[in-house]
Amino acid sequence: MPLVVCDASSLISLSESCNIGVLAFLKEKLGFNFVIPPSVKDEIISHPLHVKSFSFSAVRLRKALDAGVLTVISSPTLVQETKTIMNESNSLFFSHHKPLKIIHDGEAQCMGLFSSVSAKLFLVDEKTTRMLLEDPFKLESVMRSEHDDLKVEEKKFDFFKKMGSRVKIIRSTELMALAFEKGFFDDYKENKVFALHSALYSLRKSGCSISSLELDQYESIYA
């Protein structure tokens, strides 16, 4: 069963766009095993359950957890790995001689988890974590356009490129496309392609880091 480590950003996008059902669907159809570290559970379920305006999203995600669609896992080395990743990522870029904090501990914990459990896929919608693992030079270029005095510890890029090479990164949009191919939108009959396109736009609106150009590419692939 392919292990998929899920970042909070993707689960939030899926829940807010009313697409959380795609997880149960893919678990059944493709045997995906969706896992989250303890900090992500706190972020998306434990804390928001106590805030009325956020509690419905938390309840939906808790339902997925209770049904076994999502599983919380950890590893003996997770605390140390998370610490290392936080130290490395938050001392990569400097502006006016000060290190820029770019990665949060939840995101770092996900990165630590997929390394220690040999996950096949890392589901993450937010852009900094994804760029750090796939193309840190691109991240540097984006940051240079926003900071006039950026200094970069490029020798640390290897640490993240090596980590990124161990896993494939997907977003909630790719999960949606996989689900479409397996029949997730078949109930929409002649409107199923339109339903997919709409779902993808809805994911973008909910914060999935997908560009307008990529959405156009999706519309061409699934025409």
């Binding site: 950003s9 939030i12 996008s13 807010e16 896929l121 919608d125 937010e126 852009k127 994804r130 760029m131 796939e134 193309d135 691109k138 984006v142 494939k168 990164i169 997907i170 977003r171 790719e174 999960l175 496309a177 996989l178 973008r204 609106k205 909910s206 914060g207 999935c208 880091s209 997908i210 560009s211 307008s212 150009l213 990529e214 590419q217 999706y218 692939i221």
Partner: peptide, 26 residues
């Protein structure tokens, strides 16, 4: 915040892989 960012054009700047490549990876 996710939603607020999603309503801006900010997300157009962060492409790393093509959609085809990402789907293939999945």
């Amino acid at each position: 915040l996710n939603e607020y960012i999603g309503s801006t054009k900010m997300l157009d700047k962060y492409v790393t892989l093509s959609v085809k490549q990402r789907l293939q990876n999945a």
